[in-house]
Design a binder for these strands. Structure first.
Length: 499
RNA sequence: GCCGCGUUCGUCUAGUGGUUAGGACGCCGCCCUUUCACGGCGGUAGCACGGGUUCGAAUCCCGUACGCGGUACCA
């Protein structure tokens, strides 16, 4: 890129299609997106499919769908196109070999012919002699089969014969590599701790390290924003930029998302702790995307004030990498639920009703109509965390209860049956067939008075009889919603049950 | 082991030499109330440790401990 005009910000989210989009990956994507939009730049999606063995069918589609669901708009990608394409690394194969050759010609990379077994043998040998983590490096490469140790005729012969080989980075023996990370400041590594990283694999594919450097350069990426797990390999990337004669992009290594029990939030751990880990789990689980986005944005970042609730546009306005924290952040599911409730309640009744109608439960319950849902919406809206809980908590609005909560039953005790009997009788004799909430209230009050008990003594049995649960939405409006016929039927059923 | 990064209430965080260390989630209590929620009010709880530097350190420096990441022809 030319250094004259201030080049506009270009960032990339570069997942490998080895599985569904993980919540940690989503946050990385989000931070990239927020940063790009904050600076009026571009957000690129690049698929890093250089590992043929771990490729998962459908993963790319999952990534695209997940980002879209969250409201993260991609500017360039395999699907959206763009001038810096192709955006799938498997489609850029030629370019990597070309780049690797450039390095070989500059004598900063070399061919290596060692088999996996030979490398293993070397490791065993060194381990036996007291080296706890032997690696293919500036020392050990001298005793291995590579273009640095083999006569050039033999190297030529092997290449022509089609012998399998890899291309390795010739990491200098004693050098200090330094770069400035926006989040961590100056980071320094000594090259003696680095190994001769494989750049081109024997299957002709590049490794992440080569591909990411070449692509970031070719695509004009200005800022590399990625997880902290990449920090250790950053010096290798810096070395590569130097050897290519390219200006390295600005680096920012994000803190990891941790499991409540400690350690990186892995799929396994998350499942154990009841945390949905793939974005698709949130889509399928009917969570609010705005909640996930807001929650994730604040997991490792804060605008510096006491605010908590922000839309995507506000987050874009507020975001800055300098304010990203350095330490790992534990995933707090309850806080996510708090956000979810917030964004759910923020929606109009009409919006929620429409969404409810599209849920599978709307089809399995009888009598679910737009009118019915609209009528009981105010009764349930404040009581649910996720939208689909509406049908769990509100099932009794549509179907008779099939069982009665034990705790509730224990609470009303033996008097329940007699109370229900009196209630039933009073309602049956009630002159009106269309009682409103107020009328039901009077019915309950009058019956309680006649029985010489408090209102509470009649409410719980009634609630249990009509809903099966010991708690729930306001009772009298619920009764009004159900209607006299249904209420009488349920009271009758309860009477039979409890006798 | 080695290399790197980190460490403020249980959790997410504000804080950049002088604050009664602030907010949020959670938890607890009270109010509201026909239950459960919602809402309102209040409470609980924190600067990992040890040395410096300084009139003064959560804030700066060094060390220790602990945690995390990396240490692949995976990303």
């Amino acid at each position: 890129m030319s250094s004259s005009a201030p080049s506009s910000v270009r960032v990339r989210f570069a997942p490998s299609p080895t599985g569904f989009l993980h919540i940690g990956g989503l946050r990385t994507a989000l931070y990239n997106y927020l940063f790009a939009k904050r600076h009026g730049g571009s957000f690129i999606l690049r698929i890093e499919d250089t590992d043929q063995a771990r490729f998962v069918e459908g993963a790319e589609e999952d990534i695209v769908r997940s980002l879209a669901w969250c409201g993260i708009e991609v500017d360039e990608s395999p699907l959206h196109g763009g001038e810096a394409g192709p955006y799938r690394q498997s489609e850029r194969k030629k370019r990597y070999m070309e780049a690797a050759m450039q390095l070989i010609n500059a004598d900063v990379a070399y061919y290596a012919f060692d088999t996996a077994e030979e490398i293993e043998t070397m490791r065993e040998r060194l381990k036996a002699s007291g080296n706890p983590s032997p690696s293919y490096d500036s020392i050990t490469r001298q005793s291995m089969k590579n273009s640095l140790t083999l006569p050039s005729e033999e190297v030529q012969k092997r290449l022509e014969a089609g012998d399998p080989y890899v291309i390795r980075l010739k990491v200098p023996r004693r050098e200090s590599v330094q770069f400035t990370d926006i989040i961590r400041g100056v980071v320094t590594f000594e090259t003696k701790g680095l190994d001769d990283q494989v750049l081109m694999k024997s299957d002709g594919m590049p490794t992440y390290h080569l591909a990411n450097v070449v692509d970031d350069h070719d695509m004009g990426v200005t800022h590399v924003i990625r997880g902290e797990e990449w920090l250790s390999s950053a010096p290798k990337h810096i070395l590569l930029y130097n050897y290519f004669g390219w200006e390295p992009p600005t680096m920012a290594h994000l803190p990891l998302i941790m499991s409540p029990s400690g350690g990186k939030l892995s799929k396994r751990k998350a499942e154990q702790e009841g945390i949905p880990v793939n974005t698709r789990d949130y889509i399928d689980g009917n969570y609010e995307p705005e909640a996930l986005v807001n929650f994730l944005a604040y997991l490792g970042w804060s605008p510096g004030d006491d605010s908590e609730i922000h839309s995507m546009d506000e987050l874009i306005d507020l975001f800055s990498l300098e304010k990203v924290s350095k330490a790992g952040a534990v995933f707090n599911y309850k806080k996510l639920m708090w956000y979810n409730e917030h964004y759910l309640r923020e929606q109009s009744d009409d919006t929620i009703v429409q969404r409810l109608l599209d849920l599978p439960a709307a089809k399995t319950l009888s009598g679910v109509t737009q009118e019915a849902l609209t009528a009981c919406m105010p009764l349930l809206k404040e009581r649910i965390t996720r939208i689909d809980e509406f049908f769990e908590m509100g099932a009794f609005f549509f179907e008779d209860p099939t069982s009665y909560d034990e705790k509730g039953m224990a609470k009303v005790g033996d008097s329940a049956s007699a109370m229900i009997h009196a209630l039933h009788q009073a309602l049956e004799q009630h002159p009106s067939d269309e009682l409103d909430a107020e009328a039901y209230k009077s019915w309950l009050q009058d019956t309680a008075d006649a029985q010489g008990v408090g209102l509470g003594k009649v409410m719980l049995p009634t609630r249990l009889a009509i809903s099966g649960a010991g708690f729930g939405p306001d009772l009298t409006p619920s009764l009004a919603f159900l209607g006299k016929k249904t209420v009488l039927r349920r009271l009758q059923t309860a009477m039979n049950h409890w006798a």
